[in-house]
């Protein structure tokens, strides 16, 4: 019975279809991450400027996005935008939009934290040596900030990839949906399919995210 079950993975193009689903997930995450990084940096700088109104607006945005479960945000954009603005957003567009908004908020907070964590006397000692502002940022501040930021950013990307699994719940045909389709289509011939399919999906997520997080840890260790 065990053999009969696991062989569903090798039948036809099932496995390839699962990988196709994985690609949908990764595509959404990478697109959102690619947009979040630059926007996040801008947002982070925005959070650090001295205008109190900016700080308040920034914090409200940040806290709301972070306290709401991503699925709620997906619902708000996908179901709500249609009703509120009459837009007809595709589910994939909604997903990228939501993850970009979330990613920008998280990235902005990381940038803000990294900038604050550089001690003031780093700026001062650079100036005491005669460096001007541009040089200070270029040679002293930004390299240190990057070293703190990059592992955290990679960690954010991993989180994004995992959270993208949610989009199946707004109907996007990604890995889980493909898995469901395979299971339904083969309900009679492969009754134990669900075990193997979801097991493989579990492993596919693991082997996608784990190398990335190991890489981030390696970087962190190398730079500390």
């Amino acid at each position: 019975m065990q053999d009969l079950g696991i062989s569903i993975l090798f039948r036809g193009s099932n496995f390839v279809r699962l990988l196709g689903g994985l690609w949908v997930t990764i595509r959404i995450s990478l697109l959102a991450a690619g947009l979040s990084v630059p926007l996040g940096i801008l947002f982070g700088l925005f959070l650090n400027i001295r205008n109190p109104a900016a700080k308040v607006i920034g914090r409200i945005y940040l806290d709301f996005i972070r306290i709401m479960p991503q699925l709620v945000l997906l619902f708000i954009v996908f179901f709500g935008a249609t009703r509120a603005f009459g837009w007809n957003l595709s589910n994939e567009f909604s997903a990228v939009l939501v993850f970009t908004l979330w990613g920008t908020a998280e990235m902005g907070d990381l940038v803000r934290g990294a900038l604050i964590s550089i001690p003031k006397h780093q700026y001062e000692s650079a100036q005491a040596l005669g460096l001007d502002t541009l040089q200070t940022y270029r040679y002293i501040i930004i390299p240190q900030t990057l070293r703190r930021l990059i592992p955290l950013t990679i960690n954010l990307v991993t989180r994004m990839i995992k959270t993208t699994s949610l989009v199946v719940l707004i109907g996007i045909v990604e890995m889980m949906k493909v898995g469901q389709q395979i299971i339904d289509a083969n309900r009679f011939e492969y009754p134990t399919a669900a075990l193997w399919i979801y097991g493989v999906i579990f492993l596919l997520y693991f082997f996608t995210c784990w190398p990335i997080s190991r890489f981030a840890k390696w970087l962190e260790r190398k730079w500390n």
């Binding site: 889980m176 979801y198 999906i201």
Partner: peptide
């Protein structure tokens, strides 16, 4: 390194098998 949804699906749909 794995999302909760996948874990739940495995437990709820997979284990009964």
């Amino acid at each position: 390194n794995t999302p909760l949804l996948v874990q739940l699906f495995f437990l709820y749909f997979g284990l009964p098998k």
